[in-house]
Amino acid sequence: MSASIIPCELRSVVKSFGRTAVLRGVSLALDAGQITGLSGINGAGKTTLFRILAGLEDADSGELVFGASGEVGLREGVREQVAFVTHAPQLYPLLSARENLQLFADLRSARGCETMPAREALMTVGLEAVSDQAVRTFSRGMAQRVVLARAIAARPSLLLLDEPFTALDTEGQELVLRVLLEAKERGASVLLSSHDLARLREVSDRVVRLHAGRLESPREPTGHEGAEGVKARLPESSATTRG
């Protein structure tokens, strides 16, 4: 069993594709029990940042440092504790929801990682009734819930959510918020991106904005930052959806 990967820190991460700079020196520390909101316009590089954090892409320069021991890079031991939810559901369409979850649970257990049973995870997202149906019969929202269940099942120390509200109904969005809070209470660190700045401010302990490849603090200070505010307002307030 490896040590916790939190706090996780990005140190001046640079990424460019050809002559297009995407990230121009992004430094970000993700602490335990903290929800960090990431805002930014389309093409600001949010997804690239997530992909680098999840180990799907490597940075041109800069470092990813995990845990108190300062391990650099995304080795398997680190990936054990990271869960990444993208806006596109990454599921095998031919397999059932349970099989999809079971695959990842098996892969984890081959490494000796604890994983929540698939049934339990699906119950959490309210899909236990359809757990044996092929994912391709699911709507986008349902598929998104399955992905959430997969993330929950891993009990990650670092939860990465790239546009998780996409395609979700009100209930589903509340579900995301519940997941966020649960992770936060567990002491995990959450990085969350959304176009919906208001919602982001609502749920996050702090919001950072990715603009032109750099991280900025948001322009106007918000009234309801901080853990207390989030706790007070959730999950009821999340019912007010936008867009």
Binding site: R19, T20, A21, R24, H211, A212, G213, R214
Partner: peptide, 11 residues
């Protein structure tokens, strides 16, 4: 160099 230059645009 072009990259750095475009970084100048941003800041």
């Amino acid at each position: 160099a072009w990259l750095a230059l475009s970084a100048g645009d941003a800041a």
